[in-house]
């Protein structure tokens, strides 16, 4: 599945990274607690979250993630978009809730385990 497929499935807006939507994605994790993402995520390429601050982008960067999906119609600030652009992370925003978003992605084949596990 590509990030473009995910955008279509979630009817999401692209906040940045339009030119790299062809990246391939196999796995995802979802949390509003960045400490848990840092503790438990391993090689997951997408972070699904409703948390909105620049540390979300930095956490994704530290974990080598390719894309962040913001749920509940939340839109990232300019500062967050600039940070994401600087480390080539795609930002998507969907009107779906966290549960719904995870359900759609899981049903369509994304797994919870990391790409290389």
């Amino acid at each position: 599945m590509t990030i473009h497929d995910i955008k279509e499935l979630l009817d999401a807006r692209v906040c940045c990274g339009e030119e790299i939507l062809n990246r391939s994605i196999l796995s995802a994790c979802a949390s509003d607690m960045m400490s848990d993402v840092l503790a438990f995520a391993k090689n997951q390429a997408i972070l699904v979250t409703g948390l909105m601050n620049p540390q979300v982008i930095r956490t994704a960067e530290m974990m080598d993630m390719k894309c962040i999906v913001f749920v509940r119609s939340k839109m990232p600030s300019d500062e967050m978009v600039n940070l994401a652009e600087s480390c080539s992370i795609v930002l998507l925003s969907t009107d779906m809730l966290m549960f719904e978003t995870c359900g759609v992605l899981f049903t369509k084949g994304l797994i919870g385990k990391g790409d290389t596990q």
Binding site: D32, S35, D36, L38, L51, Q55, T59
Partner: peptide, 15 residues
């Protein structure tokens, strides 16, 4: 509320 302070910092550093 900012997504940290879950008591995972030092354990993560050790991990």
């Amino acid at each position: 509320a900012l997504g940290f302070g879950a008591g995972m910092g030092l354990p993560n550093m050790k991990r």
